[in-house]
Amino acid sequence: MALGMNRDVFITCAVTGAGDTAGRSAKVPVTPEEIAAASIEAAEAGAAVAHIHVRDPVTKQGSRDLALYRETVRLIRASGVDVILNLTAGMGGDLTLGSVEAPLPPSAVGTDMVGATERLAHVAELLPEICTLDCGTMNFGEGDYVMTNTPAMLKAMAAQIKALGVRPEIEIFDTGHLVLAQWLEKQGLLDGPVLVQLCMGIPWGAPDDIGTLMAMVNNLPKDWIFSAFSIGRNQLPYAALAALAGGNVRVGLEDNLWLGKGVLASNGDLVAAAKTTLTSMGAKVLTAAETREKLQLKKRV
């Protein structure tokens, strides 16, 4: 899939994530009201898509609580701001082994493993236009935590997402995940155009150097649509790199807290910076309506 520069780019803003970042920046949204406001801020700054996790308002940690999703989505939809909702379906695949000498039973701290239907309960009720599908299993951090997504689990989730009429955004953290995504498509489980997010620079997945990015891009089927991002200080440079590689852009506080050295960012700051970069390169930043048409999405109200 060798492409030239993409000159019609949509921006996704990943507004909060589930990582331990809320204690590092007061600008990371936590409550449904804050997450909704951050999504609206991102849309007004130029993001077509808001990628949403929810957090426990007390612990500030990532959550699967349907009531939190329900309120967050209600507030965004009630605002009248046009933004495509992309709800995570990654929660519920968290496995933390007991220890290096006694991996079983798993640790109660950090383990949250549930079935395909429960992982998609919020998607089934709220029917966003997009939800994520983490296409593989991967080590995270330096301990015993494993992001766990077996082929059987992914097959079941993809079938349910398809039946709901929601578009999965396939999260690719490493090259083997791309092979798994192609396997799902061959079984008729992914509606076109297939939407892919290349998640670069996350230990211990694909590094974010240009060679690795282009190796992944060049192995995408030609009719797939992709975005790409990196984390930390390479997030904003990737706004340019992703577009040059033929893709779309993701920024946001899930992946990076900083606008510049010593300057904490808001989601709106990061979207605005990415938009400035893209427009200075001669690219058009697509609206939610234009992105919806490009991705052939079903608008929800």
Rank of each mutant, 00 (worst) to 15 (best):
P29I: 06
V54K: 01
L184Y: 05
P29K: 03
L259A: 14
P168M: 10
T148E: 08
G260L: 02
A102H: 12
N218E: 15
E33R: 10
E118M: 07
T150A: 10
D144V: 13
S266I: 08
L297P: 05
I210D: 13
G201N: 06
G192A: 15
P207H: 09
A37R: 15
T291M: 12
R7P: 03
S39R: 04
G260I: 06
G143K: 13
D134P: 07
Y238T: 13
G17M: 01
M5V: 11
R292K: 11
A206F: 08
N149T: 13
K162H: 08
C131S: 09
A14S: 15
G92L: 03
A43R: 08
G268D: 01
R119Q: 11
K60M: 08
T88S: 14
D8T: 10
V179A: 15
N256H: 07
V9Q: 10
T277C: 15
G141S: 07
S39W: 01
A89E: 04
N86F: 05
F140A: 14
A240L: 13
A78I: 02
D208K: 11
M216N: 01
N219Y: 09
R167D: 01
M91I: 13
D56W: 02
G205T: 07
A272Y: 01
G211A: 11
V28W: 02
L253R: 10
A48G: 10
P32R: 09
I231C: 01
I202F: 12
G62P: 00
